[in-house]
């Protein structure tokens, strides 16, 4: 218990230090666009309260990254009428870390700590929304849409990238994968938990464009 408290105190101290720093370190290590089968790029981003979150802190756990914009109709559909809240709650209940990342630039749709905190409250989201105002983390991961989802296995390897499902706005896109609904992320997490191959591991994301800086 004492060591846990000490670790917490140290973490707070470190977070405080990071926030106090005038010129924060780059949010993500430089390198080529992330690829499925390769190590997931490390990053550190602030949440809506300004607390820093790093991917490295979740080493040894399965992590889902969900590119997020609370004012994008595809995101709104997934939360208001779709299956995303239940999906996220189910998997976080099983120890999966679910990080939403908003790479919208200042002044763009769905940007900023107040709006994203409001979305957390309105949709009762568990876990933070991380703010990537420069778009550096989004560009490093090749995030193109909201939603755009990534699954990272406990070893830190990117094992899935793409769409939430094959049903944009709830309507199955028959031109891509036939007529049956497929929940790609749910299937990937299930396969990962069962030690099976993830197939497909790469799908075409759909949705609003990520609102990167001009």
């Amino acid at each position: 218990m004492t060591s846990t408290l000490a670790a917490l105190a140290l973490a707070c101290l470190l977070a405080g230090t990071a926030r106090a720093a005038d010129a924060p370190a780059a949010p993500v290590e430089a390198g080529p666009v992330a690829q499925v089968g390769q190590p997931a790029p490390a990053f550190t981003l602030p949440d809506t309260a300004g607390t820093a979150h790093s991917l490295a802190a979740h080493a040894g756990k399965t992590v889902v990254l969900e590119w997020f914009n609370p004012d994008c109709p595809f995101v709104k559909h997934a939360y208001d009428t779709g299956l995303l809240p239940g999906l996220a709650a189910t998997w976080t209940g099983q120890g999966v870390v679910w990080l939403r990342i908003n790479s919208g630039a200042p002044g763009k749709q769905g940007h900023g700590a107040p709006r994203n905190q409001q979305a957390i409250d309105a949709w009762s989201l568990q876990g933070p929304v991380l703010l990537d105002e420069t778009g550096a983390v989004g560009q490093r991961y090749g995030a193109k849409t909201t939603p755009h989802l990534y699954v990272i296995d406990p070893a830190g390897t990117l094992v899935y990238a793409g769409a939430l499902d094959n049903a944009p706005l709830g309507k199955v896109d028959g031109a891509v994968d036939g007529t049956a609904r497929i929940d790609y992320v749910h299937a990937a997490l299930g396969a990962l938990g069962a030690g099976k191959a993830i197939d497909p591991s790469l799908t075409r994301p759909y949705g609003c464009s990520v609102k990167y800086p001009d």
Partner: peptide
Amino acid sequence: AAPGGLWN
């Protein structure tokens, strides 16, 4: 063209 090097 869209910001961030995205194309539609």
